[in-house]
Simulated assay, not measured.
Amino acid sequence: MKIGIHHRKGSFSDRWIEFLEQKNIPYVILNAFDNDIIKQIKENKVTHFMWHFNQNYFEDMLHARTLFRAISQVGIKTFPNEDSYWHFDDKVAQKYLLEALDIPLVKADVFYHRNEAEKYIENASFPKVFKLKGGAGSINVKLVKTKEQARRIVNQAFGGGFNAFDSKAIFKDTIERFSRQKSLHNFLRIIKWGFKGIFVDQQYKVFPKQKNYIYFQEFIPDLKYDIRLIVIGNKCYFLKRNTRDNDFRASGSGMLEFAPGKFNLEAVNIAFKAAKKLNMLCVAYDFIFDANDQPLVVEISYGFQPYVYDRCLGFYDQNLHWTETQVNLEYEIINNFLNEISLIQ
């Protein structure tokens, strides 16, 4: 066994490399973007290849799936696997996937033609939640309160389209977070995102416009929080995210709680069962609860922000029992990956 890793500082690979060195497992750091990457993988006799690719990097989204698919054809195991990455950062793809697998989700409607979208608006009740396919931290999420507002969004969707990243929204969120949690770190983030919000980071400009589709999700009123559940193998980790002030969005708020309080544990049960159906070694779910306290999936992802979850206090097992312990999710990912835990048994 020899592990190939595409390394980017600040990603999962920091700790993957640390884990491999501690366990004396042979590995090699490779640049996935090298023209001769396939030759390098073969010459180094790589058996497993790992890359924490990121939705904020256009080159990652352009290349990662292609490389993973190619090397899997010759028996190289990848993290993430194809069942995990094909729908990554694509809320529309996830809608169809979750519906196909009968996983309870917040109802969403997608249209690819203007006339169908317009008919939908005339017959729908508002508010609705408008989203683009991609984007993390609620940056591409808006509450649509009226039919007239929905019509304007449809005109833009089937006209000039939307920027894939709304840097001004990121800047605004950073300001709001700083107002709640004054710190030097957040001040420096404001300076950073201020430039991005005003000038728009060049990195984001290369993403194509989002157009010729429209995605509306049902609005669940009076939400005060959502929960992030991360299933890795036979463990489920918990994080609560409180909504912004006078806002329905929890993702990206920075208002986090790690001690699992009282909530419907059926969400944990759904998370474990869905991971098997999805054939994902690691899957992060965003859950909300409807008026009847029934858990509904908002979206899923194989990846998430590193280090944040070090503050988790433990995990649930498949019997819904809680164990308090120190948490290192990156270690859990690579340990499960190398032990090839089957999620479909």
Rank of each mutant, 00 (worst) to 15 (best):
I341T: 13
E176D: 13
S167M: 10
K235D: 09
K2Y: 08
M255P: 00
L229F: 03
I227A: 02
I175W: 11
V154Y: 00
S138N: 11
H7P: 08
F238G: 11
F195T: 03
R180K: 15
K196M: 05
V144A: 07
Y225W: 10
N264Q: 03
E116A: 15
E118Y: 07
S342M: 10
N24K: 15
K23W: 03
Q73K: 14
Q22P: 04
E118S: 05
Q305D: 04
I37A: 07
A124Y: 02
N54K: 08
F187K: 13
A117N: 02
E332K: 08
Y309S: 10
R65T: 14
A70D: 13
F49C: 06
G303S: 14
E176F: 14
E21F: 02
D89A: 10
E299G: 11
A169H: 10
R189N: 12
D89K: 06
L105K: 08
E324Y: 09
C312F: 01
N54R: 09
W322F: 15
S11E: 07
A100H: 14
N163A: 12
G303D: 06
H6P: 11
S301A: 10
F195V: 07
V297E: 03
F162D: 12
K205E: 12
F315N: 09
H321A: 15
Y302T: 08
H321M: 14
N123Q: 15
R249N: 04
F258D: 05
I198G: 02
S179L: 15
K128Q: 09
F304E: 07
K128D: 00
K196T: 00
A291L: 08
H185A: 15
K95N: 12
C312K: 01
E324R: 13
Q55L: 13
L30T: 13
E340Q: 08
V106C: 15
Q203E: 14
K23P: 06
N319S: 15
A271N: 02
G160C: 09
N336C: 08
D226E: 15
V283D: 00
F258T: 04
A271L: 03
L343Y: 05
D90P: 09
F53M: 03
T243M: 00
P208D: 09
V268G: 06
I139K: 01
R69F: 00
F68N: 03
F12L: 09
G135K: 04
H87K: 11
W193C: 07
E266S: 01
